[in-house]
Design a protein around this nucleic acid. Structure first.
Length: 874
RNA sequence: GGGCGCGUAGCUCAGCGGAAGAGCACUCGCCUUACAAGCGAGGGGUCGCUGGUUCGAACCCAGCCGUGCCCACCA
């Protein structure tokens, strides 16, 4: 009857298990599209998950580990349920991040991109991308991702380029892409335009200086935090209804330093209550001023180049913007123009999200996507329920963004990216080149120098990876994809854009049905992980020390929808301990002949203990399914943790020991079958979260090929057994009470104590006397039995113990006194409720009944404890 | 300046209208024949504050206080 314990070493070694399992999976072509796919495509339901591209740092970030843990868990479960599953993996970072990283590497060699030239630079990025990409994919595999890596692709391969060209052309032809001179966010360090969301605002210390413009009757005071821009002023604006300035509207005022005369205009935008009520207008360097300039036909004077160096004539030419500011303030002061200075002055300043350089609003010619119709569709898809955002609270954030979006600046002055497919002819012609067109040739034609924003191509992800624009089988089968799992931090960057482009390109069909958002990984104190704070976790380090399973369990255990995920090394060690517990439980089962042979006996044939655990298992399966469907990974982990540890290990295995150890037991074989079944099902339920160890244990237990391919457990209602659950609850109560007594009395756990039990029948425990004796280590009273202590337990069970000597009366009195206090409080609470006519009248019947029962029980306990205390003192 | 969220045991968090919970940490006792990466027992909380609704509030409402995040072109 002994199974095959040789398959399980005595000590759980995560690294060995994971290595062995991984090799097994690879050997079985686990990562190929068709491997382990049950059913085949014909009848299976498709399930497709979109996974975010990993970033380009070349190392596995803990955030990716979280993403992949959650995604992989969802896919593994679906696969076990018989779905035809597909991941959409890949790497798509054609943006500033990649360019920055490579530029930094070049700088280490003393080179700049300009030394290489565009062609060579792009080549260089490709080479580096291949290296870091390969590295990161290798690292991800260690997490046990069930990604179909055979479909690996990198950006800017032919397929994606084709998709980008197609999309651009379509939008262009629909009039949704246009080129215009606008104020955009400009990073003077990256030397490129940025979209609104690539700008981070922080409250920074600055200065607010008030400057007097003009003199005599035409004189106004304006305030500014960017004094240097006054060189580019082309007007002063006041509110049309402002009586202080009404007489000046239409007149001209002299600009200090330059001596230029600029008009005073009236504009509704000006807030008369702020400062002096007059505003300097610099159309080329401020978005508001640009608007005002448009409304009043003002010229735009650019006074700064792309690096933030002043280009205006005069003594300030060639100064950096930060040098120019104090220089200009000083010059104004000398002329007596400064009427007030406020320093420090806290105000919001925009920074480049990549390099933190202060962003400079800059007038320039850029490409834009007209987002209004796209954004409306993206909002409606969520509003009308076609796309569900989990958790729903986050959809408010989504709406507020999608409903108030500015046109999207998509051109970047970088070299790494998809180049804008527009050609300019010698006669001023503009041609947008589609994927099947050849670019115009001939003298004077040139392509636009700019490349597209990373998120332009990323927004195509859910369908470009399926082959779009070609009408592929994958596209037909897997679009719309089932779920997108990602952090809420890229709700705007990525999710909303996939929505806009997906709906547009796929004729109104949403890119995914569900967006499951999780939070950021935090440390154990809820702090953000940052390099400077030194609390960054390297997932590979945890994988080495605790195992990929433990790392995954730790991450999944914190993954509540939309909430941040705190992790710490201790918790990861705890997860490893949990895996170890599973290991040992399975070893126990194997050593005790747990069996998978034949059908599971029906409930009627089983002992109460077996029926109890099967009933608990059934409830657990149902609960887990519910939690998975709600993307509540943290609860899945919690439920399984407690079922496995508390119910299976701490109680079921202990309850089953006497049966399995008894050669005469009639139940033993059926129990072995149940034991095998419970572990089998438990391992299946855990497999999505901790794939390696469950596969190792499951194959050892069952001799099967791999747990990866077996069916997901289904709750069998016929095993629900309330009576067995009630009996076991009573049993647990008695055992725990006796243990408490023993502990309080200082009885060694190993010391067996003779005891007589009575009053078992009413609690339904008659049949379980031997189990109670076994768990509480109570011997059957023999000759010379003399009870030295009497325990009267709730439910009317009595235990007389022969402790072979006097008991510790003080300890016992303390214990009973405490119980008495608890019970008295209980009685008082119940009475108070029942004595309140309003409660009895208005509360639901069952609630009142419940309180009545509680009162009866509590009163019985009260009598019992009082008697015991009295007996103790005599 | 708007919007969202959170304040429950030392720490991180569940619970969201009918007896205050988990993990870790802590105390005590144990190498009890799967597991010391373990077993058994225990201590610890007027559920941020103040009012209100209700027979009943950690849970619903209002106002405060504290805290975090997102959005924002107030010079």
């Amino acid at each position: 009857m002994t199974a095959h314990p040789e398959h399980l070493p005595a000590v759980y070694q995560p690294a060995e298990v994971e290595q062995r399992r991984y090799e097994q999976w690879v050997a079985a072509s686990y990562f190929s599209p068709t491997a382990f796919r049950p059913g085949g495509r014909g009848d299976a339901q498709p399930y497709c998950i979109v996974i975010p591209p990993p970033n380009v740092t070349g190392s596995l970030h803990i955030g990716h580990a979280l993403d992949h843990t959650v995604q992989d868990a969802l896919v593994r479960r679906r696969r076990m349920q018989g779905y035809d599953t597909l991941w959409l993996p890949g790497m798509d970072h054609a943006g500033i991040a990649t360019q920055n990283v490579v530029e930094r590497k070049l700088a280490e060699e003393g080179l700049s991109r300009h030394d290489l030239g565009r062609e060579k630079f792009v080549e260089r990025v490709w080479q580096w991308k291949g290296e870091s990409g390969g590295a990161i994919l290798g690292q991800m595999r260690r997490l046990g991702d069930s990604v179909d890596w055979s479909r690996e692709r990198f950006t800017m391969d032919d397929g994606l380029s084709r998709a980008v060209l197609t999309m651009f052309k379509r939008l262009y032809d629909d009039g949704l892409i246009y080129r215009a001179e606008r104020i955009i966010n400009w990073c003077p360090r990256c030397l490129t335009a940025l979209s609104d969301i690539e700008v981070e605002h922080t409250d920074d210390d600055g200065e607010l200086v008030s400057i007097r413009y003009g003199s005599g009757d035409v004189s106004v005071v304006v305030a500014t935090t960017r004094a240097e821009t006054m060189l580019g002023d082309t007007a002063v604006a006041v509110h049309p209804d402002d009586d202080r300035y009404r007489h000046l509207i239409g007149r001209e005022v002299e600009l200090p330093l330059t001596g230029r005369r600029v008009p005073i205009v009236a504009d509704e935008h000006v807030d008369p209550s702020f400062g002096s009520g007059a505003v300097k207008v610099t159309p080329a360097h401020d978005p508001n001023d640009f608007e005002i300039g448009q409304r009043h036909g003002l010229p735009s004077l650019t006074i700064m180049d792309e690096r933030g160096v002043i280009t205006a004539h005069g003594p300030f030419e060639g100064l950096d913007r930060y040098e120019a500011r104090p220089a200009i303030v000083a010059a104004l002061r000398e002329e007596g123009r400064i009427v007030a200075e406020k320093r420090p002055y806290l105000h919001a300043v925009g920074h480049c999200s990549r390099c933190k350089t202060t962003v400079e609003p800059r007038l320039s010619l850029q490409w834009f996507v007209r987002v209004a119709p796209l954004a409306r569709a993206a909002g409606d898809a969520v509003r009308d329920g076609r796309v569900r955002i989990e958790p729903t609270e986050l959809s408010k954030r989504y709406f507020s963004w999608v409903d108030n979006m500015h046109d999207w600046c998509i051109s970047r002055q970088l070299w790494w990216g998809h180049r804008i497919p527009v050609w300019y002819g010698p006669g001023g012609e503009t041609v947008c080149v589609g994927p099947d067109d050849s670019p115009p040739t001939g003298q004077g034609w040139r392509q636009d120098e700019d490349v597209l924003d990373t998120w332009f191509s990323s927004a195509l992800w859910p369908f470009s990876t399926l082959g779009w624009p070609s009408p592929t089988e994958d596209l037909a089968r897997f679009y719309p994809t089932s779920v997108l799992v990602t952090g809420y931090d890229i709700l705007f960057f990525w999710v909303a854009r996939m929505m806009m482009f997906g709906l547009y390109a796929m004729d109104g069909v949403q890119p995914f049905d569900v967006v499951a958002l999780h939070g950021m990984v935090r440390d154990q104190y809820g702090k953000k992980m940052s390099k400077s704070f030194g609390n960054v976790v390297d997932p590979l380090d945890w994988i080495d020390r605790f195992g990929a399973d433990a790392t995954r369990f730790t991450l999944a255990r914190g993954a509540n929808p939309g909430a941040d995920v705190p992790v710490s090394e201790e918790w990861c060690a705890g997860s490893r301990n949990f895996c170890n517990k599973l290991w040992n439980a399975t070893r126990f089962a194997l050593l005790n002949g747990a069996s998978m042979a034949g059908p599971l006996p029906s409930a009627a044939e089983l002992s109460t203990v077996d029926r109890w655990i099967l009933s608990r298992l059934t409830h657990t399966i149902a609960e887990i399914d519910e939690q998975f469907e709600a993307y509540e990974l943290a609860k899945v982990c919690d439920t399984l943790y407690h079922f496995a540890w508390d119910e299976v290990c701490d109680w079921y295995l202990e309850l089953v020991k006497p049966v399995l150890g008894d050669p005469d037991s009639v139940d033993a074989d059926r129990t072995r079958r149940v034991l095998g079944h419970v572990l089998d099902q438990l391992l299946r339920l855990l497999h999505p979260i901790v794939p390696f160890v469950t596969d190792e244990l499951w194959t050892a237990l069952t001799g099967g090929e791999s747990i990866v391919v077996v069916a997901w457990p289904v709750a069998d209602e016929s095993y629900v057994d309330d009576r067995a659950e009630a009996e076991l609850a009573a049993l647990q109560g008695v055992v725990t009470e006796v243990r408490r007594f023993r502990s309080d009395q200082g009885l060694k756990p190993g010391q067996r104590v003779a005891a007589a039990l009575d009053g078992l029948a009413p609690a339904g425990l008659t049949a379980h006397e031997s189990l109670i004796r076994s768990l509480a280590r109570l011997d059957v009273p023999g000759a010379g039995f003399a009870a030295t202590a009497t325990l009267a337990l709730s439910g009317g069970v009595g235990v007389q113990l022969d402790t072979r000597g006097s008991i510790d009366v003080a300890a016992e009195r303390a214990r009973l006194t405490k119980d008495l206090a608890t019970t008295e409080r209980e009685v008082a609470q119940c009475r108070a409720k029942l004595d309140n006519p309003a409660f009895v009248d208005k509360a639901p019947e069952q609630v009142v009944a419940k309180i009545r029962v509680r009162l009866v029980d509590a009163e019985a306990d009260l009598t019992r404890i009082t008697a015991a205390l009295a007996a103790l003192t005599t």
